[in-house]
Design a protein around this nucleic acid. Structure first.
Lengths: 192, 192
DNA sequence: GTCTATAATAAGATAGAC
DNA sequence: GTCTATCTTATTATAGAC
């Protein structure tokens, strides 16, 4: 059991990289720094990953699967308010699982750096698909804005609301309360 | 008139840097690249600015003044819904002036990189002050979330709403419609 | 699976001529 | 106000021993 040296080194690299990339930024974090935190050398990193952005790809891929499942499910549902609410609720649920929230925070904090990485482009594409699914049937600018903000509501209640003693469940409830409000105003306008 | 060589070189550097920093990211954009776009050398840049982050400071300072004025005004007003609405409306107005929106976009796109820059810390501080002003009298988590989202509403309608043929005025109207909705639910809960 | 050593490159910044 | 030339330091990445 447990991780002496060599245990789940690949996973440990992913975890440390995700943390440092989020705190300091992708470009500002060097492989030397990651290696030092793990008490290994840079060369050891290159045994597990073929490049710096391959590390990013490794944890972004995990998250993409979750997004795809969500988007696929939405496509099978009618374009009603009930569907929109269930969709954002399911999205909020994914923010509880394992490293998923950390990956989203990393994504939000490194948008520009990720523009030139294919993992970043994929994530961005999925976020747009989710936003589209949230305002399906009403693609007016107002609906697009509300859909985008309902996603922000979930992220913001996780990352930015300054209330140290609030529980995960309360954050979720909070986010959905505001998101539901925003989604309720979608669908009342005709398509463009 | 016009800009042969030497016209308003300092301003031209600011403009090009702001554009490249926003498009590609602060860390990824080198002084060499900025110099090449202006058909000067790196050394010329160092005549006008003492360092790379001094360029950032130069356009962030401009924007900080506008933020300070807004925050100071808010402090003189009563903590009512009318004040909140007027405040977000005035904030939206500042997004029309000159390079102000570009600076905010740069800020949003380079949050992590700006963490270690004093200009970035100042901007972040001002955004928090603005958010606080928007939910003064009700610092519940729900109010904080709504205040933050009302700011996002303004930014998102500018930067992210995919509607190519929409006018600035329509974007402003859109943002305030959604922001007003969010702000209306603030103030109904007691302070913590 | 991890190491030492190093290649290859590019960055931010400075000195001093013009 | 802009140039050439250079310093210093860091980076990503690879080769090959153990």
């Amino acid at each position: 059991m447990s991780e002496s040296t060599g245990g789940g080194t690949r996973e440990r690299i992913k975890a440390v990289a995700l943390e440092l990339f989020t705190e300091q930024g992708y470009e500002k974090t060097s492989l030397r720094e990651i290696a030092e935190r793990l008490n290994v050398t840079k060369a050891a990193l290159y045994y597990h990953f073929k490049s710096k952005d391959d590390i990013v790809a490794s944890f972004v891929e995990d998250r993409l699967e979750g997004m795809d499942a969500l988007i696929a499910w939405a496509a099978t549902q009618p374009a009603t308010l009930a569907t929109r609410r269930e969709l954002i609720s399911r999205y909020a649920d994914t923010m509880f699982d394992g490293t998923q929230p950390s990956v989203m925070r990393f994504f939000e904090q490194n948008q520009t750096a990720l523009k030139s990485l294919s993992s970043g482009q994929k994530m961005r594409g999925r976020m747009l698909e989710l936003a589209d699914a949230l305002c399906r049937g009403d693609n007016s600018p107002a609906a697009q804005l509300r859909a985008a903000l309902s996603i922000f509501a979930v992220h913001t209640s996780w990352f930015a609301v300054r209330a140290p003693h609030i529980s995960d469940d309360e954050r979720r409830k909070l986010a959905l309360e505001v998101a539901d409000e925003l989604l309720a105003a979608i669908g009342t306008q005709p398509n463009a």
